[in-house]
Design a protein around this nucleic acid. Structure first.
Length: 584
RNA sequence: GGUCCGAUAGCUCAGUCGGUAGAGCAAAUGGCUUUUAACCAUUGGGUCCCAGGUUCGAGUCCUGGUCGGAUCACCA
């Protein structure tokens, strides 16, 4: 039966049918004069090297300029040669050259380092004997002299004549991936370079490279074709990076390298403090643990709705019940809500929980964790953001009510920041203590949040908006909860975890009532979570840290889309048109 | 969703009062061949986002739309 279903009618070529309905290669890689030229070069190179897409190239330990320099510096027989070279070159007038004796000495040293094999993308257009290769992180100059190098055949047979190597060199294109084998030397201007003895063709750039000076400026292309944006970053690397790159805008590549540093630093810090990493469900039968609208999907075999998680919180606390006293999860949450400069439908959150710790201990610990990652990512504790200097060396702690009372002031700074434009008081200052929870919250969000530039823990949240948080023993209307604000953005949210199952149940019921009154973000009752608490959860504190927002702050990026490799975007119009066109 | 701004060569961008579509980079051809954003000469390359309208004539003015960005409101 099943076989029959997939049998094709006679004279029916499935591939031909599909090719009519699917976009053609030329519709995906739209040809123009440059692509056609590159295709011709590829065809000729394929003749010369037999296989234009070989499987591997073995590199020597030397993969780029930094390695070259460090190897040079550690080369004992001519100690100080590299420093001498740097000094000589620093003193040179533009257009002048280092003295011959120094150049000769350096060349002697470099040649003694032996044969090197390096590979990378051609970062400068080929014209003449020089190109720079980039491995994404740095650039190394390559020199090829007619008659002095051969072209490697990628099928392992004997190399073609040197003239053919030169022909191949001349038709290499900006962006092609090549490997070279050769020896190191310094040029007349003093730049360390590889003198090619054997050239390997490794892969073709059929599509042309972006502008070498400007890169990709169109934000849509940067985000949709992030690979191209990253290539542009690597093409823009200076082969002689300035000693101090401070104050310069990070390239896209550097932004994501820094993001990785922040995340790995946090993992390391947590591991060093005996936290273990866990993975809890992304697809959940109930969207709960936060106040947000979920994405809904459907499981066919079970025939049930499933929700992309809005927070891992309740699962992680089940694990605390089970005896994992320190757990963390660093992964995505999904919220079916608006998109803005600080909101993406999926975002990365670090959540962790610690048994026998309260809200104050959690603030202490998370402050250290954030400081550690700031230091690891930026080298210091003060970062420049949107013209502000943000100082991570001390996080202020202010109650929400105090913050509102002193509104207009900057509770975390010694100097009062100006009140935000247009926030002229809708608030009866004298009667703050009489404000209802919702009025207090509104006043806070409207007037205070935007002024919290320096890292500030806002504490003492109203209990009514904190359904998973323990109430303060002194004031039952206040939750033992904090949020961390930096540059007017909420970056973290934590509290002493409510562990009384009966009270937790009642809080869920209160939330259900809110939902009935029309708040479709009120939290959903999780029965099994209540049941879990009934087995006894130790006193514990937890926190969620918005990683994307922290990365924004530490990379001086003003849009969350600039710190997410592939942010959510509308489907590409061209693709839709092609798909629709196939059916016409 | 509201408001404002934008879309011109592969990339980055000019384009005046409505009158033959421009530059730099990239590409092709030749020269040069230890250059430093390499240089010199020559050449090719355009659905000016789309559809209407006004006009003798529209990249330019008008209307509608598409896509994108910024911003405001809601959410972390």
């Amino acid at each position: 039966m099943r076989q029959e279903k997939f049998q094709n009618p006679p004279n029916f070529d499935l591939i031909e049918i599909l090719q009519m309905s699917l976009p053609s290669f030329d519709e995906i890689v739209v040809p123009n004069d440059q692509i056609e030229a590159r295709q011709e070069h590829l065809a000729r190179l394929a003749e010369l090297v037999v296989n234009a897409y070989p499987s591997k190239f073995v590199r020597s330990s030397l993969s780029g300029r930094e390695d070259t320099i460090s190897r040079l510096k550690s080369y004992a027989p001519v100690e100080g040669a590299a420093a001498e070279m740097d000094a000589v070159r620093a003193d040179l007038e533009p257009g002048t050259r280092p003295p011959a004796e120094i150049k000769d000495k350096l060349n002697e040293v470099l040649k003694a380092l032996g044969v090197v094999r390096v590979a990378g993308r051609i970062a400068t257009p080929i014209r003449g004997n020089f190109v720079h290769l980039t491995d994404g992180r740095e650039k190394l100059q390559i020199y090829a002299k007619r008659g002095q190098f051969t072209l490697a055949r990628n099928d392992g047979q004997a190399d073609p004549e040197a003239d053919q190597a030169w022909e191949a060199w001349q038709i290499l294109d900006h962006g092609d991936l090549i490997g070279v084998e050769g020896f190191l030397f310094v040029t007349n201007t003093g730049e360390v370079s590889v003198h090619v003895e054997r050239l390997y063709f490794l892969s073709k750039a059929l599509s042309p490279m972006p502008d070498k000076m400007h890169g990709i400026e169109d934000a849509e292309i940067k985000q949709r074709q992030r690979y191209l944006d990253l290539i542009a970053s690597s093409l823009q690397i200076k082969s002689e990076p300035p000693a101090s790159a401070a104050g310069q805008e990070l390239t896209t590549r550097e932004v994501f390298e820094r993001r990785a540093k922040i995340i790995s630093s946090m993992r390391r810090f947590l591991e060093d403090h005996d936290y273990i990493e866990v993975e809890t469900p992304m697809l959940t039968p109930k969207a709960t643990g936060a106040a947000a609208k979920p994405f809904e999907t459907h499981h066919n075999a079970l025939d049930i709705p499933l929700y992309a998680r809005i927070a891992p919180e309740l699962y992680l606390k089940r694990l605390v019940v089970g005896g994992f006293e320190k757990v963390y999860e660093l992964n995505r949450n999904f919220r079916n809500e608006g998109i803005s400069y600080k909101h993406n439908p999926e975002f990365t959150m670090l959540e962790f929980y610690c048994a026998y710790l309260d809200v104050n201990g959690m603030m202490d610990f998370s402050e250290k964790l954030i400081q550690e990652s700031v230091r690891n990512a930026t080298g210091g504790l003060v970062v420049e953001y949107e013209g502000n200097k943000i100082d991570f060396s001390n996080f202020a702690r202010v109650t929400m009510r105090e913050a509102v009372v002193s509104r207009g002031g900057n509770p975390s700074g010694s100097e009062g920041a100006p009140r935000p434009e247009g926030s002229t008081g809708t608030l009866p200052t004298g009667r703050v203590s009489a404000l209802s929870d919702s009025e207090l919250l509104e006043a806070f969000e409207e007037n205070i949040e935007p002024t919290l530039i320096q890292p500030t823990f806002i504490i003492d949240f109203p209990k009514s908006i904190s359904p998973l948080s323990k109430a303060s023993p002194e004031n039952p209307q206040i939750a033992e909860r904090f949020e961390l604000f930096i540059n007017g953005m909420e970056v973290a949210n934590g509290f002493s975890e409510l562990n009384d199952p009966r009270e937790q149940y009642e809080r869920f019921v209160d939330q259900a009532a809110e939902r009935e009154r029309g708040d479709d973000e009120a939290m959903v009752l999780d029965e099994d979570y209540v049941r879990a608490l009934s087995y006894g959860m130790p006193p514990a504190a937890g926190i969620g840290i918005g990683i994307d927002r922290l990365v924004m702050l530490l990379t001086n990026k003003h849009s969350i889309r600039d710190v997410i490799l592939f942010p959510h975007m509308r489907p590409e119009k061209r693709v839709e048109a092609v798909e629709a066109g196939g059916e016409q």
